[in-house]
Write a protein that binds this DNA or RNA. Structure first.
Length: 569
RNA sequence: CGGGCCGUGGCGCAGCUUGGUAGCGCGCUUGACUGGGGGUCAAGAGGUCGCGAGUUCGAAUCUCGCCGGCCCGACCA
């Protein structure tokens, strides 16, 4: 490709409405342009990177025996009704009606459609099967953000495994796990595998692959000691046991005028530190009032609650609902002597001499013993893990930090196969629903994630495997015939050698070309200029390190081809 | 969906308070000089000031409505 005829609209200034680094650099480098909120056009450079990522993913999927499909974007309502998700999903699914008035959805994921296809399987002898595709996914996100990191239309590699039993699923899942590890390594980063919540996908186990980045929006807890890692929606820690004072024979009510928050009560004369308080939250769980108890110093993880109560919908109760249920306002709530369903966090187990609200405005109780004074119906892990808490496995300190979710794999079980009647006969001639897994990688999100992980002040620094071009031949002075010809010869030789090479033959000042090459992030730059040619050399510069060295002109192509081929993985 | 900010040539911005000629930098075109890290000079092209109503002799500027974008939060199979 010739730069003089390529569509690479680079920008000098950061676009005003870009915040994330990858967003700024992908716009400035001419990789992508926004069409509307959460919808982007990929320009030629962006598409080149996208195709390279796809190629890597495809090869690893084929490697584990997966077969490539292409399923439609438009899905009839009926299929989603079968799985129960037509109603379960909500406004995140784009829906419309065709000319006959039939409901149609734009696919946000393809469990239903692949399962529909899989109903043609008849025998356990056909299993296992792994199907996959690269397909546009449409999700009407409430808030698209950060450029390509969170969008409403994107390409996903989604694959689905079909096995006769759980053991088979485990094997398919493990193969995907390993394939994903290889994929992320090849595209240029170490993803951290974490335990995750399955959310609305259903199923009983899921693992997310996370890239540490401030541009991300998922917090994970990770242990350097033993490698334990979990999304904070799932992660646990091993809290030290608290030895409480024996306390009182019975709870004692005391006045706390004006105290509304945990912090107020900590600072109140006669109050208690957060760790010795019981925080009482009222939630509506499928239209039922439930009391949730946590230590004053802890934060509720709604996802943990949702995952463990198997409810359709949970939400905090409104102030009015709370008053109706408990007769007091938030800030003075407690569970002592209350008849509602009470769920307590495990960290409260065995605690005594605690302080909590008295269900009377401006009054609290002290000397509360969770076992003696509160009728706890269920002890659950409800709290969000905090930075520095001991790892549940090895007790070293956990680090909690922000990440980008670059892949997610699920064990689905038989949720979809049962709902959609995807069954095969087992060796005894008995019909059994196939056991499924599903596995996803968002291609453009990974593209942006690579930029988040690989950039510097001058621009993007693409890892060679995903770079839009591997080498740029920068002709310093195109009007100088010798210079231009030398550049062309190198360009030809590199092309012959199978290298993705771009020749910068624009009549621009050298500085402009250097800046553009850096911004766009091409791993190697061969600079051909009059100065070097006078000495019979060209300069090879490595984008990542900024190092450069002179190569004899007649050996240059060969050297570069060798280096590039060597670096490809 | 709640809160905040913002829509003026391709990009970044000023002008709006106090209504009256649309302006600056970059980029773009042509020419000259230049040529190893975003050059200099000269001459140009390019704008329904997000859209629609209203007020006014006159609206980028004031009023109302709508649309769009970004950020924070809620949400996120």
């Amino acid at each position: 490709m010739r730069w003089s005829h390529a569509f690479i609209p680079t920008l000098r200034d950061d676009p005003a409405d870009a915040e994330a680094i990858s967003h700024k650099l992908l716009l400035r480098g001419g990789f992508a342009r926004q069409l509307m909120a959460g919808v982007y056009s990929l320009l030629p450079l962006g598409q080149r990177v996208r195709l390279k990522i796809i190629d890597i993913v495809r090869r690893e999927m084929n490697e584990i025996g997966a077969q490539e499909f292409l399923l439609p974007s438009m899905h009839p309502r009926e299929v989603w009704e079968q799985s129960g998700r037509w109603n379960a999903v909500g406004p995140e699914m784009f829906r419309f009606q065709d000319r006959r008035g039939a409901d149609v959805a734009l696919g946000m994921t393809h469990e239903e459609i692949f399962t529909h296809v899989a109903t043609e399987m008849r025998s356990y002898k056909q299993l296992p099967q792994v199907f996959y595709q690269f397909q546009a996914k449409f999700r009407d996100e409430a808030r698209p953000k950060s450029g390509l990191l969170r969008v409403r239309e994107f390409t996903m590699k989604d694959s689905y495994s079909f096995d006769i039993d759980e053991k088979g699923l485990d094997a398919s899942f493990d193969r995907h796990f390993e394939a994903y590890r290889k994929i992320f390594r090849r595209i240029g980063f170490e993803a951290i595998a974490v335990e995750a919540s399955s959310g609305m996908m259903g199923g009983n186990q899921s693992i997310e692959f996370m890239l540490a980045s401030d541009a991300g929006e998922d917090w994970i807890a990770s242990c350097e000691g033993c490698g334990y890692a979990g999304n904070v929606e799932k992660a646990t820690s091993k809290l030290p046991t608290v030895e409480d004072e024996p306390g009182l024979a019975a709870p004692e009510k005391f006045p706390t005028p004006g105290v509304r928050t945990i912090e107020d009560l900590e600072n109140f004369e006669g109050g208690a530190p957060g760790i010795n308080q019981i925080k009482t939250l009222v939630y509506r769980v499928d239209d039922k009032d439930v009391l949730l108890l946590l230590r004053g110093c802890d934060t509720l993880s709604e996802q943990k609650l949702l995952d463990s109560v198997e409810a359709e919908e949970i939400r905090p109760a409104t102030a009015d609902e709370i008053r109706a249920a408990l007769g007091a306002s938030p800030g003075s709530l407690g569970a002592v002597g209350v008849d509602l369903f009470v769920i307590a966090d495990e960290a409260l187990q065995g605690r005594r001499n605690m302080t909590t609200g008295a269900n009377e405005d401006d009054h609290h109780l002290r000397g509360v013993d969770t076992a003696r004074d509160i009728d706890v119906k269920a002890w659950l892990d409800l709290r969000e893990v905090q930075d520095g808490e001991p790892c549940p496995m090895c007790e070293k300190a956990l680090a909690v930090f922000k990440t980008i979710e670059v892949g997610h794999i699920f064990k689905l079980g038989t949720k979809y196969s049962e709902a959609m009647d995807a069954k095969v006969l087992d060796e005894n001639g008995k019909a059994r629903p196939v056991v499924m897994g599903s596995y996803g990688i968002g291609i453009e999100r990974n593209l942006a994630a690579i930029v988040e992980a690989h950039h510097d002040d001058s621009g993007i620094v693409w890892p060679l495997n995903v770079a839009p071009f591997e080498v740029v031949v920068t002709v310093v002075k195109p009007k100088d015939v010798a210079c231009a010809e030398a550049g062309e010869r190198l360009y030809d030789a590199l092309q012959q050698g199978g290298i993705d090479v771009l020749i910068d033959d624009r009549d621009e000042r050298p500085g402009v070309k250097f800046k553009d090459a850096d911004l766009v992030g091409i791993p190697y730059r061969l600079t051909v200029g009059p100065k070097g040619l006078a000495d019979g050399v060209v300069e090879l510069r490595t984008r990542r390190t900024g190092e450069s060295r002179d190569l004899a002109i007649d050996r240059a192509a060969e050297t570069v081809i060798e280096a590039v081929l060597d670096e490809r993985r």
